[in-house]
């Protein structure tokens, strides 16, 4: 009977994951592997293609080739295009924060926790969750953005002026290793829940109920991985190990953002992202 409950929990979380997130890993992998040939992404690989594609960044539906406005002499200078792109990334991230929040609320027991603790759990888990989800959109050559409608190459991201050019490389390195575990969306739904319900986040008022929920989620994840990946008996341990790497990745990222604030006076962080990053590590 207990395993039936754990399976029901996995099913529930998978369903709310599908409701909360517009681009699943399954869809992203289909696009990246070229299986969606009638829906190939627009590729941004240099400044010219960035300027051509930037108005579609964060569009849910890119106009077809013949309906795209012709690029004329009114192009912004490349530097501005780069900055505007970084701003739209922030807006997409803020939107993703609200998607993750909706997902968190669907985890049984989460909304019954003290409201302060809900804030703490989300604050500390948010960037970890976003990086895990970003891995689904990446391969060694680049990443999907704009709901899978644009593919931006890793080389182009690397060419961004300092320090932006260096910021994505560690995420690619993490993603390539993480993707080797071959988790699917139903595994991810549970893994993200486990990350969110971490009882060791600083400042939690009531640790016990958080740990109790996470314990159930962990048992559900263990069973899920056993059933979904019978040929990888060590997968559960490997997945948990990634949580340590993830914390390091996030703490390095937050440090880079803090450095940015000192060097890039024009760079203003989205207020929601500011809330999350303030006093994080």
């Amino acid at each position: 009977p207990e395993s039936a409950d754990l399976r029901a929990l996995a099913k529930h979380l998978y369903e709310s994951y599908l409701k909360s997130f517009p681009l699943t890993k399954a869809k992203a992998r289909a696009i990246l592997s070229g299986k969606n040939s009638d829906n190939a992404p627009f590729v941004i690989h240099d400044m010219r293609s960035l300027m051509e594609g930037e108005q579609f960044v964060n569009c849910r539906q890119i106009p077809t080739q013949e309906h795209r406005p012709v690029m004329g002499a009114l192009h912004p200078p490349p530097d501005e295009a780069e900055l505007r792109f970084l701003h739209s990334c922030q807006f997409r991230s803020a939107e993703a924060v609200s998607e993750v929040t909706e997902f968190a609320k669907s985890i049984p027991g989460f909304v019954n926790l003290d409201l302060n603790d809900q804030v703490t759990l989300l604050k500390y888990a948010m960037i970890e969750v976003l990086f895990i989800m970003m891995a689904a959109l990446m391969n060694k050559d680049g990443t999907l953005i704009s709901y899978g409608q644009i593919f931006m190459t890793r080389e182009f991201l690397k060419s961004f002026r300092k320090p932006f050019g260096e910021m994505m490389e560690p995420k690619f390195e993490f993603s390539i290793k993480f993707n080797l575990l071959e988790l699917d969306d139903s595994d991810m739904a549970l893994f993200l829940s486990v990350i969110i319900l971490s009882g060791d986040r600083p400042g939690l008022l009531n640790v016990k109920p958080v740990e109790d929920i996470q314990e159930t989620l962990l048992r559900s994840l263990e069973l899920q991985l056993k059933m979904n990946h019978p040929d990888s008996p060590q997968l559960f341990a490997k997945v948990l190990q990634k949580m340590t790497d993830l914390r390091q990745l996030v703490s390095d990222h937050v440090q880079s953002i803090q450095l940015l604030k000192q060097t890039e006076i024009d760079m203003c962080l989205h207020p929601l992202l500011q809330e999350i990053m303030r006093d994080l590590y």
Partner: peptide
Amino acid sequence: LKEKHKILHRLLQNSTSPVDL
């Protein structure tokens, strides 16, 4: 903590209506 995280707090309290980001 809620005071320092007003938008996050609002997202948590709002059930389905889209929040102005």
